[in-house]
Design a protein around this nucleic acid. Structure first.
Length: 307
DNA sequence: ATGCCATACGTTGTATGA
């Protein structure tokens, strides 16, 4: 079973690239963030043509999360956002914009969960999350980000307590350690790397969740996001801020984990994030691990060499 | 510290991103 997460920075602008990548990587489950679409505008037909069903939770201009699964996969018990939380009645916050006084990340479309059952596989509960950015350390947006993380921690604890196989993936907007940024000096004092943010991320791991990529890929310089400007991708000036966190039973099934930098290249214009992928084995279903297996055969048809 | 690029919305600019 192949599960991936990808912040696409507008599913409308990225649709052609996403269609290309679905064929290239052939994920069974794809968690999407920053679709920037309303639910009514979700590209259901395009995904169906590519062989996928999509469940979408969006608000229109900003944010927006989705879960795409191979057609024929069972998707049940979908949940959008936390279902509660410190919500203020501010329409500007609900739109995702507005002034600092209006800001309320709990009204924005930042979480979608569902129970997914592939044919012949055991059900897995998955969640697609898009954490707030934070903007400036100490700002109201930064404190909103930390409050959102507190709520995420509680929500994850409840999900894990059910004992079901569980995986949460998405754009966490936190680089867990200095090894997850190209130059700690360059980002010092900014968001994504501050001690409170890293402590919030560490608390998610303290719940028992395992960083499926970081726990098995320890080489330096592997990132999931690079700024569009100044040739930062070419220079590999990036950060590892997208993550797949799994319960131990799921993490133990991880056969392979990779960041597909190919999707950050070329035309049409790519997202500033690359997809993060894991392959899980499944009882009674043999898989080919990594690009060395099915993935590499897919890639070889397109002339891809992992870098 | 920096918004150099990119997105949406909407219209010659503003808000947002990490």
């Amino acid at each position: 079973m192949r599960i991936a997460t990808w912040n696409v920075n507008s599913l409308k602008a990225r649709l052609e690239k996403v269609e290309w990548w679905l064929e290239r990587a052939a994920p069974d489950i794809l968690l999407l963030q920053e679709t920037k679409l309303s639910d009514a505008d979700a590209p259901i037909m395009a995904f169906a043509m590519a062989g996928y069903d999509i469940v979408h939770h969006g608000e229109g201009r900003w944010n927006g999360v989705a879960i795409a699964v191979r057609s024929g996969t069972s998707v049940t018990a979908a949940q959008a956002n936390f279902g509660d939380g410190p919500v203020r009645d501010t329409s500007a916050g609900a739109r995702g914009g507005g002034s600092e006084d209006d800001f309320d990340p709990f009204r924005e479309a930042r979480l979608l969960a569902a129970t997914v059952t592939l044919p012949g596989a055991v059900p897995i509960r998955v969640a697609s999350v898009y954490a707030p950015n934070g903007r400036v350390v100490g700002s109201p947006f930064y404190h909103g980000k930390l409050a959102w993380y507190d709520r995420l921690e509680r929500w994850l604890a409840a999900e894990i307590s059910t004992g079901q196989p569980f995986l949460v993936g998405g754009d966490f907007n936190i680089a867990p350690s200095d090894e997850d940024v190209w130059d700690p000096r360059a980002v010092h004092g900014g968001t994504h790397v501050s001690a409170p943010e890293r402590a919030a991320f560490a608390r998610l791991l303290d719940l028992g969740l395992i960083d499926a990529y970081g726990s098995r890929r320890t080489e330096r310089g592997r990132f999931t996001w690079w700024d569009y400007r100044a040739g930062n991708f070419h220079k590999n000036f990036g950060m590892r801020i997208d993550h797949l966190l799994a319960t131990p039973d799921v993490a133990a099934r991880t056969a392979w984990a990779e960041i597909d930098r190919e999707a950050r290249k070329g035309k049409p214009i790519p997202s500033d994030h690359a997809p993060l992928i894991v392959d899980l084995d499944a009882p009674g279903r043999e898989i080919d691990a990594g690009w060395g297996g099915a993935g590499e055969r897919i890639a070889a048809r397109r002339g891809y060499r992992p870098d």
